[in-house]
Design a protein around this nucleic acid. Structure first.
Lengths: 185, 185
DNA sequence: CGATACTTGTACCAATTAGTACATTAAAGA
DNA sequence: TCTTTAATGTACTAATTGGTACAAGTATCG
């Protein structure tokens, strides 16, 4: 049996899936070991701070992805409408049309929130603000843009909850379609 | 110290808060004992099936409340618009303007869902259908009513996630205000 | 009062939890 | 190659987990 050498970055996706599916409390080291294929030795080598550090790394990883693929385009893209359309497409792809859940959203519910309050709050605040910026650049009034962006961010989270609850990805797809119409893209 | 005699029904609210705040996995017997004021003896006397039975009892309790206060009025009230307005008010009160989270929604995310799939799915499906009925009675076209009701249910869940994530009840209040406007009440 | 059923606290259990210690193995650089 | 650093598996811990057993307490009702 060959010993495979990993690095920290490699395990973040698998780690993310575990926290996504089980939440922070539910993600036991046993599950984490099974899903990452790493033993405790490696896990605590990469994350000396244990589960808490793992969760923080996952949150940072997710945040980086959204910053690159969604928030920055929303803030900086010349074509604001195109950036908004891109956000919808990226959201649909990332959450696999509602089959995948939002780790950050899952952490927001439950007392886990306190522990990761900054990362959780920041992720959503920046999404809301980036979208508001894009809407303003697309010609909306500032107040309307703020309202609309908050509504959009919250609708995506709600769509994830509802589509998972009734076990029907069509719920998520329909919600994104309505969102496109409301956002005018 | 007097020995106080409880009955099953009495502990459901406290039990509900525990699952609400900690989720199913995070709700340890130790926490449950502390919050309900009941020892293991009483707990397993009332709920021989352990945590799973406690969670099912909580879900049923919540379901009953919504059935009585929200779903039935939506289905049966002569004045459909009034029933919808009542739904908004009941929702705001129940979730304490976003300070309280939805147990059913919290269970929907995470692998807990599988275990309580029926209760979770049913709760949301009935909410959506009851609201659709009311909207049709209020004069909407069936298709528009179905779309609008799905959007409303999911917006409430999303508002709970977002308001908790950014730690701001104003998010929830604004979301309900937008909802009232969209539902025309 | 006395019998019966309900309620509760305590002691206990095996399994699992997160985390540590450390020796071994693999890779990288001189 | 030799040395150093990074990565890994194994064995271990102390605490906590959900759950059981059961005796003792309390209420109910004849």
């Amino acid at each position: 049996m060959a010993k495979i050498v990993h690095e920290r970055e490699d395990v973040l996706p698998a780690l993310g899936e575990v926290f996504r599916e089980h939440g922070f409390e539910g993600a036991s080291l046993a599950i984490i070991q099974a899903r990452t294929g790493l033993g405790k030795g490696s896990l605590y080598h990469f994350f000396p701070g244990g589960k808490e550090e793992m969760a923080n790394a996952v949150l940072a990883h997710v945040d980086r992805w959204f910053e690159d693929e969604v928030y920055r385009p929303l803030r900086e893209d010349e074509d604001a409408a195109a950036a908004i359309a891109r956000m919808i497409a990226a959201t649909d792809a990332y959450f696999r049309s509602g089959q995948r859940v939002c780790v950050v959203g899952a952490f927001a519910l439950g007392e886990t929130r306190e522990r990761f309050a900054f990362a959780v709050g920041d992720y959503f605040a920046r999404w809301r603000e980036a979208l508001r910026d894009a809407l303003v650049r697309a010609g909306r009034a500032p107040d309307a843009a703020a309202d609309l962006s908050e509504d959009a961010v919250l609708s995506i989270q709600g769509a994830l909850v509802l589509s998972r609850a009734v076990n029907d990805t069509a719920v998520f797809t329909r919600a994104l379609a309505r969102l496109k119409a409301r956002l005018g893209v």
